[in-house]
């Protein structure tokens, strides 16, 4: 937008804009084709499934039914047939949202300084540090989760260290708690925070930071007023990449949380698996998709408005 000319009314400019839009679409089309083929397109199948009747043993019967959507919000009590708000679903949604939010905040609190640290290394060694961040993630998610379990379990490293140091006399039960889920998800999604933040931090112009100090700003002030606003796109990208996958996380809650409490991902999986209720599973996931999408679009619209106000 930097090259936006003031002569918006000129015919030439309008033609140039049209050409740019065409170019933009051309650039985006290959990605869109793949996504429509292998992600969004098939999702239409799910949308259709959410309005069909559940098959006897998984799958669907091709008869229209709103039962799936009905069950997302309302529960018919199996004992007295009364209809009430599906509080089991609500509390599962709430737990997922709360844990994902905490995960995002923790990942940001750890990831931002780490990205900053990497971005302020000499240029030649930055890629190495970046690689060091991703190396642990070259091992498989399941094996990594099991390794975390070894670290935090009652006879694990952390408890053993704390006990031999005399800090605690009894092991702290960390495994199979919400804390373990949050810790595990933070661990698993940390690179998704560090990498985007780093990507926008790396191009940060430190002359602006220097200017801040020249104006006698404190370090905290420079951080809040100069650095964070400049790397905001990266922070936002990181938060999106951490928060949304946490919402649908499946493996970590099951292994580290001990599977005693479901999260949305597990609830949906239950419907497609042992529960044999595909329409409910489909409706739950379309609902989740809608909520997240609306929130994102609102965010994008707001940030664009904010940008336009700044730029014009």
């Amino acid at each position: 937008m930097a090259d936006n000319s003031q002569r918006n009314d000129s015919v030439f400019e309008a033609a140039a804009h049209r050409a740019r839009v065409r170019r933009n679409w051309l650039l985006s089309t290959p990605a869109l084709i793949i996504l429509v083929l292998a992600a969004s397109g098939p999702l239409l199948v799910m949308l259709a499934y959410s309005f069909l009747q559940a098959g006897d043993y998984g799958g669907v019967e091709y008869r229209f039914s709103t039962e799936g959507w009905f069950q997302v919000f309302l529960a018919r009590d199996i004992f007295d047939d009364t209809v009430s708000v599906a509080d089991a679903h609500l509390s599962i949604f709430w737990r997922s949202a709360r844990l994902s939010f905490l995960t995002t905040v923790t990942a940001l609190a750890l990831g931002f300084p780490t990205a900053y640290f990497i971005a302020t290394r000499p240029r030649s060694s930055r890629n190495l540090w970046l690689f060091l961040v991703t190396v642990p993630f070259w091992t498989n998610l399941l094996i990594r989760t099991f390794a975390i379990m070894e670290v935090i379990k009652n006879q694990g490293i952390v408890n053993t260290l704390l006990m031999s140091a005399g800090v605690i006399s009894e092991p702290i039960q960390m495994l199979y708690t919400d804390f373990a889920i949050m810790l595990g998800m933070t661990y698993v999604y940390l690179p998704l925070m560090i990498l985007p933040v780093y990507a926008s931090m790396e191009k940060l112009d430190f002359r602006l930071v220097e200017a801040g100090y020249d104006l006698y700003a404190t370090r905290i002030k420079v951080l809040w007023r100069v650095i964070i606003p400049l790397v905001k796109p990266g922070i936002v990208a990181g938060c999106i990449l951490v928060f949304i996958p946490s919402l649908g996380a499946y493996v970590t809650p099951r292994v580290l949380g001990g599977g005693r409490n479901l999260m949305i991902g597990n609830l949906i999986e239950l419907q497609f698996g042992q529960g044999s209720n595909w329409p409910l599973g489909a409706a739950l996931s379309i609902f989740l998709l809608l909520v997240v999408m609306v929130a994102l679009l609102l965010y994008v619209r707001n940030s664009q408005k904010a940008n336009n106000i700044v730029r014009h």
Partner: peptide, 28 residues
């Protein structure tokens, strides 16, 4: 670029795989 019509659609489509749990995409 200046905002153009459909930009949000592209944005939404590109990010869509993030927004549904894997099992849904998997079954689809």
């Amino acid at each position: 670029t200046r905002p153009y019509r459909g930009q949000n659609v592209i944005y939404a489509l590109v990010n869509q795989p993030l927004m549904v749990p894997e099992i849904v995409t998997a079954v689809a």
